[in-house]
């Protein structure tokens, strides 16, 4: 399965504020993109637009799977998952029950053993029968990652996916993600993590894409220069 998302001059306006403007890019299979920018640069807005959480104010986003255009929201939502700072898991359900609900909601038939295997993968077997609200912040985040991986998406939209994780956790998931055939769009303020996780970089400044570069064309030092400049822009504003 191959997918392609084409953003054509996309803009998003909240009242008088242009959160994003004139954004034209393509995301396709194998893209692992780090999205960098200062606070309020439009990173989360872009993720929300791609996730179909809100429609663009101008421009067009077109989705394609295996060369065929996909325009119904449920079908688009089938190809991607969103992992944000909110875990999207119910406090009163256990880890297993939560994942079971997500699986059913996404129309996936899956046994408890397979779900337990998934919990093992994120190192959270202990949370299997534990109420979600009694789990620690880091455990919740790990379960949240399991939730995002469960529907086997083609594209992951990651908004600070590793916040609250210990260094072992970050190392584990960086490895896990790299070993998969997933594509993703990552928003993080950790410049080093962004460098490790990506083969492309989009750098946003005040709602505009100012750099779109491939990792192959970039030295680490140049990357740091670009990224620092972009993240500083918000402060001096």
């Amino acid at each position: 399965m191959a997918f392609r998302i084409q953003l054509d001059n996309v803009g998003k306006k909240f009242d008088a504020f242009h959160a994003l403007r004139g954004f034209s890019e393509t995301v396709s299979d194998g893209d692992r993109i780090s999205l960098l920018g200062h606070n309020g640069a439009g990173k989360s807005t872009l993720l929300n637009l791609l996730a179909t959480l809100s429609p663009p104010s101008s421009g067009k986003i077109s989705y394609e799977v295996d060369g065929k255009a996909v325009d119904k929201k449920p079908q688009i939502r089938d190809m991607l998952t969103y992992l944000s700072h909110e875990p999207m898991l119910y406090p009163d359900l256990t880890g297993l029950e939560n994942l079971n609900f997500v699986a059913r909601l996404h129309g996936i038939r899956i046994t408890d053993e397979e779900l337990t295997a998934l919990l093992d993968k994120v190192g959270m077997r202990t949370a299997r029968n534990r109420l979600f609200r009694t789990c620690s912040r880091g455990m919740q985040q790990r379960l949240s990652i399991a939730r995002a991986l469960l529907p086997q998406p083609q594209l992951l939209l990651l908004d600070e996916p590793f916040s609250g994780l210990d260094s072992e956790g970050i190392a584990r998931f960086t490895e896990l993600f790299h070993a998969s055939d997933l594509s993703w769009l990552l928003v993080t303020h950790d410049l080093e993590l962004a460098w490790q996780m990506a083969n492309r970089f989009w750098i946003l400044k005040r709602g505009k894409l100012i750099h779109s570069v491939r990792r192959d064309d970039l030295e680490h030092d140049d990357y740091l220069g670009l990224a620092r400049e972009a993240t500083m822009a918000g402060v001096t504003r």
């Binding site: 089938d78 875990p87 999207m88 129309g107």
Partner: peptide, 16 residues
């Protein structure tokens, strides 16, 4: 309870 933890967003994003 549905909106706690952003669960409602999870419902929105389901392919339904």
């Amino acid at each position: 309870s549905e909106t706690a933890n952003g669960c409602y967003r999870g419902l929105i994003l389901a392919p339904v």
